[in-house]
Structure formats: C-alpha cells, structure tokens
Nucleic acid binder design. Structure first.
Lengths: 235, 235
DNA sequence: CCAAAAGTGTTTGATTTACACCCATGG
DNA sequence: CCATGGGTGTAAATCAAACACTTTTGG
C-alpha cells in the first residue's frame, strides 16, 4: 500500500448525497445502512471518499452509483454545502461536500457494494429523531430539504421530481407534498402553463385512471422563475 | 517540523472570502496581492489554509483578519460554495470552501502579515478580464456576486451593506448599485418600511447634506422576505 | 427663495385568489 | 349516467408602478 507523507496535517474529503424524490405522497430521501464502523448498522446518506484526482461532482455521482445502483445521468445534481466541524467524524478530520439530487419516482435503488442496502425513507421520519442518521447527516438532510423547498418557489426544480413526461396535476402534487400545502388545481394549471419556458406541451395525452385525459408536458428550458411561484396556498 | 503519514492521498483544505461592500456607488470586493508562489504578485481573494482542529467559518474569519486586518464580528458571513477541481491549484489537490461576507463601507483594510496588501476593487473591474485574479477566484467572485444579488431580493441581506443606523435612501442605493437599476424612491420607501421586521425606526434623524432630514433605521429581526422585493425596476 | 431630498397620496394596470362551471373519460 | 379529475371563466381583492405633490432642509 502506498504511504503518503506531508508536512501538513491530513484532511479527508468525502461527498454525501441528499437524494430526494416524491413517493406515495411524501417527500423521501435515499439512505443506506452503514456496513462498517463508525455508526455500523445506522442509516446514513450515501457517500464516500473523494479520489485524489477526481472532481467533486464526479465523486458524488460515482458514490451514488456504487452505493445505491442509481444512475443520475441527466438528473438534477447541485452542490448543497460543505460540512467540516472538527468533531463530525470520530476517526479523522473529514470535510464533507454535500450534493442535492432530485429524481423522479422511477428507479428503485438496488444496494451496491459499499453499503449493505439502500432504501427510500420519508424525510419526516428521518428527521423526527436525532439519532436516525449517522454523523451530522440529519443536519445535512435538513439543509437539503430546505434548499429544495426554497428552490421550488423561484426555479423550475419541481419538474425535476417528475419523469420526462408529466401532467400538470403530477407537478402540482410535487409542490403540495414538498411544501405541505394544498393548491388550487385551476390556478396552479394557469400559473405554470402561463410562465413561458417552464413547461412545454408534448402533444400527447395521459390516461391516468378516471376523469378527463390530461395533456402531458415536458420540462421547459427555463431555469429561473421570475416572478417566483407564490408560496401562499392558492386554495 | 512534524511530518504526517497516511495511507490516503493528502488533500489540502483552504477557505477563501468573497468580501463585498458598496463604495462610491459601486459594488466592491476585497482582494489581496499574493506575496508568494504560485501567482505571486497577482490579486486574489483573501484566504488560506484551515488548521487541522479549526472549524471552517472560524478559519474564514481568522484568515480575513490576518490578511486584511478586518474584523467581521457581527457581520454577515455565510458559506458560499466549495471549489475542488483537481487542477485548480498547481501545487496540490486543494479544496477551497468559499465564504460570502457583506460589510458596510466603514472599515478600511490595512494589510496583514500574510499578504503584502489588501484593497477594495470594483467587481466589474475584477471580473472584466480573465487574468485579474489568481486560481479560480474569478469564478468564486462571480458566484459570490450572483448570490448577493439573488439574496437581496428575498432576504434582508441589503441591510448588511449598511451601518448600524441608515436611511432608507442609503438602503436604496445598495439595491440600485448591486442590481444596477434605478428604483423609485417613494415606492421603495413604502415597500421596505411596509414589510414588518425588515427595518426598524431608531427615532433619530440623519442630516445628510441638503434636503429634508431622513429617519434613521436599524436592521429588523426579519431574515427572509415574503413576498420578495420586486426586482423589476420600480421606475 | 430655490434646489434637492424625504416621504405620502393617488391612479392605473397587472396579478392573485376564490370558486363557479363546463369538458372528457372510465366504470 | 355519474363520479372524478382536467381545464377555463370570471369577479373581487390585492399589489406593483408611475408619478404628482407636500414637507423639510441647506445654501
């Protein structure tokens, strides 16, 4: 094994992922069960050590794939924040760069080689008690959820929770679940279809159970919303 | 000198500060002239290496004080983002955690021990050419300015550019300079005084040159603005 | 008195909200 | 046919923008 020497004290750099989706009318995060010490057997955000020549977002995507079998190609990935309290890891001085990933509720994680298993859990459940997540991952998850909630308002992040084709009602459910409010279907429809570049009609129609068929839309090119969507419940 | 060995490759962790203020009707950032290699003699954001037992924001504040003689006690300091491209520092693999600091135009930096000198420069000038700043500091500065511009809209960050007592007109100048727009004095006044908790009247009056004396306000307890200030020029 | 800045009033138009109502579909 | 969700119409309330106008100060 290679041994490195340095006149400076060693830092360890990791990446962690706050991977969010909307499942069963609840905001859910992806977690793995830790297979090694410390916190063995405890739930944790997927993540791991950054390679010495590896860019940070590349490491985040790689760890996600290795630990959960999930590919995030073409999905929303953004840097969240960096966590570096001196005592956040009992072993070493570790700096963790957290990434926020937003996925549609499609891919079922399979559990990769590093972790014993990967699961979706409701964020309300994960955050309800202080000891459900290892390290400072509760703090990281809270920040990720807060970021997602805020960005729904003034960006098109909501569409990242939907598949490539979605109905306006599906998009509305995303907002309702993430914000925990009820929105007026008619007003929401007018609002999102009225912002140029937010969503684009695909021409196709959905057949989702009973009722009139809804138009299927795809994500528009717009990233930032101006004016922002109102956060006061339109209901 | 102590020598550390590790089976993992060494990462170096630094902090850098995007320190903004409004001076002479322009948005300005604090920069130092590098005294050592690499990029010796080039302008750079103030920053330096994190100590092995030091928390990240503590390191940011310490480096700022050492390099510029500036105390940021009680001022706005927030984490901006982390920059970790493998080739961003020609010497080592270095991860830099950037902080955004917003100050009123009061303290004159003096130049500390690490850097040869510290100056305020207009961000337009610093960003106008690719080679005015060392490393990826142009990128970091651009992100910091963008963050500040965005946060003016939906938080009370604007008041952090002002001293402890300020007039509504001074606050308005901050918005005008940072956004590069002209705002209607009357509408702006009504808006900011109308949001509960944004600014609080101090009871005192300013005597700023000619014209009627303006009421002096101080920062209110409000952090997030809902609804956001409109960004379309009220003029 | 005059210029200039502070602050208020007022009008107009846009946006938000609430909710009625018709459309289309599956069962 | 009827329950259900999709989508549009519409009126009231609220908010934003433009700008007139009064107040207060320095020179």
């Amino acid at each position: 094994m290679m041994v490195y020497t340095s006149k400076y004290p060693p830092f360890f750099v990791t990446v962690d992922g706050v991977v969010l989706t909307v499942r069963d009318d609840a905001l859910c995060a992806l977690v793995v069960t830790r297979g090694g010490e410390p916190y063995k057997g405890t739930l944790a955000l997927p993540g791991g050590f950054v390679d010495i020549d590896e860019d940070l977002p590349v490491a985040a995507v790689r760890e996600l794939s290795e630990e959960t079998g999930l590919s995030v190609r073409g999905q929303h990935v953004e840097q969240l924040a960096t966590y570096g309290a001196p005592d956040r890891d009992p072993r070493h001085r570790t700096i963790s760069v957290a990434y926020l990933v937003v996925l549609p509720d499609l891919a079922e994680p399979v559990g990769g080689d590093d972790a014993t298993d990967a699961h979706w859990h409701r964020v309300t459940w994960l955050l309800a008690r202080k000891d459900r997540l290892a390290f400072d991952h509760r703090h990281i998850l809270r920040d990720g959820v807060e970021r997602a909630r805020a960005k729904l308002e003034y960006t098109a992040l909501g569409t990242s929770f939907c598949g490539s084709l979605f109905t306006i009602a599906e998009l509305r459910r995303v907002y309702e679940v993430v914000w925990g409010v009820e929105l007026d279907p008619g007003n929401f429809h007018r609002k999102v279809t009225g912002v140029p570049g937010f969503v684009e009609p695909s021409g196709e129609k959905a057949s989702r159970g009973t009722g009139r068929r809804a138009t299927l839309y795809r994500r528009g090119p717009l990233a930032a919303l101006n004016p922002p969507l109102t956060r006061t419940a339109m209901k």
